[in-house]
Structure formats: C-alpha cells, structure tokens
Amino acid sequence: MFRFILQRLLQSVFVILAVCLIAFSLFRFVGDPVAQMVGQETSLQDQENLRERLGLNDPLITQFGRFVSNLSRGEFGFSYRTRQPVSEMILKRMPATLELGFVSLLISLIVGIPAGIYTALKRGVLSNAILIATLVGISVPTFVIGIFLIYLFGVELGWLPTFGRGETVQIGWWETNFLTINGLKSLLLPAITLGIYQLTLTMRLVRAEMQDVLKTDYIKFATARGINYRSLYLNHAFRNTLVPVITIIGLQLGGIIAFSIVTESVFQWPGMGLLFLDSIRYVDIPVMSVYLVLIALMFVGINLLVDILYFVIDPRVRSKNARATQ
C-alpha cells in the first residue's frame, strides 16, 4: 500500500509540474509583463533596467525554477488589474467558493443517493417521474436553472435573496455564511443551482450500480436465505456500490469547482470563480495562472484522496495490491 501511494504521489508531482509549466508560459509569453507594469512614458532604457532587475533576461529554466519556488512559498505576484497581491485576492475569495461547493455537494449526495436507490428498487409512476426529471436536469444548462430559480423565488415569490452573499460573519480571515439567517438564505439558491446537475449524475450512477449489483448471485442467494429486505439492500447491495460512488464524488468535486464559475456569475457570488472570470475578461494573466495552479492542486489532491479511500473501503484492492508488491 505504501508503495502504491508513493507511486501516485510521484505521478501527482509530475502533473503539478506540468501545470506549473503551462502557468509559467502563460505568465511569460502571453503579453509582455514589463509593458503591463510600466506607464507609456517610461523610457526604453528604464524598461530594460526593469527587465534586468526582474530577471526576465535570465535563462528560461532559471526563471521557471524561480517561478515554482515563489509559488511554493505562497508568493503569487501582483494582479495587473488591481495591483493587489494575488494571494490576498484569492484568499479573500476562497471561503465563499468552498462554502458554496460544500453545501451543493451535500445537497447532491443527500438527495441523489436515496433517489438512486429508490429508482433502482421500485418501478412505478414516482420512479419514472424522477427519471424524466433527471433527463431535464442534464439538459437544462446550469445558468438557466439559476435564472429560473431567481425568477421564481426572488422575483415572483420574493422569499430568498438572489444577489451576493448577504450578511457574513468574520472568523479570523475566514468569512462565513453559516452563522447568520440571512447568510444561510443567500446560500440556498446558488447551492441548489450548482447541486442539481451533480445530483442527477449521482442519482443515475447509484441507480445503475444498484441494478448491476442486484443481478449478482450473492444477492440472489441472500434473498433465498430470507434476509430481510432492508438489510439486504443497505448492507449487502448498497455497500458494494460505494467504490464507483466514491470515484464519482471525487469527479464531482472537480465539476463543482468548475461550474461554480457559472453559478457565481449568475448570482454575483463573490468567490474564486467570479475572480477567474474577471481575470479572463481583463486578460489578468497573474490571477489566471495562479487560479490554474490552485485548481490543479485541488484536483490532484482529490484524486489522491480517492485512491487512498479505495484501500479503506474495498478489501479486494488491498489484497490484490498486497499480492502484487510481494
């Protein structure tokens, strides 16, 4: 197991370095960093001095090494647009995105898993209705769902706020929505919008896996033994669907981070996605490249975690690997 994790860790480092290289070439070759920093009346001599001082004339490999070491020390440079440190900008936005993502993941799992189990076990009107609803859930774009929710609950009924984070509470540098009623209400619509697509994915996957497992011999045998259905479905069948379900949760976290860009734009939610979108609009390369590296770190971290979880959950993976390493 140790060897397996080490192997994965090496792979992850490789991926991160590759993404850093992309981010670095973005930073270095898209637009001229010096031209972005100086005014128009700066003389060519001054520009050349600045170039020398920033080390832009060094060999590329040295520059790349410096870029990575700066990143690893948390020095992300300054935004071209606001002139603030990028690290500060992202750190300030991060809690908003993480809280939004967490709640929508929670919604997608709490609703998606039971709905998947139900539609796999029962056939009938309700089951069909849920399945048709998922087709709609996959076909309707996230931003349209958001708009309709705003129209229904914000404009027509006027129940929920549709703009921004509402009242938040500051804990250290972390700004949270969870501690005020208004904050929780503001969180609701964006989280549902972001969660619906993931919910349909979870549900479809759990359903397909349950159906596969229910066809296996051991379930037939367990039915023949007369085990009560509740225990049969939950302890015998559902437990064996968990491995693919964990994979999909891992993938979903990625999807949630990506689609938070869209949701944050619809609800003007001040998170990292909105920051990234602004940086694309204004070609703010430092923010773009740092966002890219952070996203890559998150994805790699999630994948690593999923791999390790396999060991904890599935004894078959453990024994196969143990044999392979001997």
Binding site: L251, G254, G255, A258, F259, I261, V262, F276, L277, I280, M288, L292, I295, F299, N303
Partner: peptide
C-alpha cells in the same frame, strides 16, 4: 480530469 467548461474558458 478537468471539466470541459474549464478547459474552454482557459483556452478562450
């Protein structure tokens, strides 16, 4: 491992 929307946004 990256969702399509992110790749498209980045290339854009």
């Amino acid at each position: 491992s990256l969702p399509a929307i992110l790749t498209a946004l980045l290339i854009d």
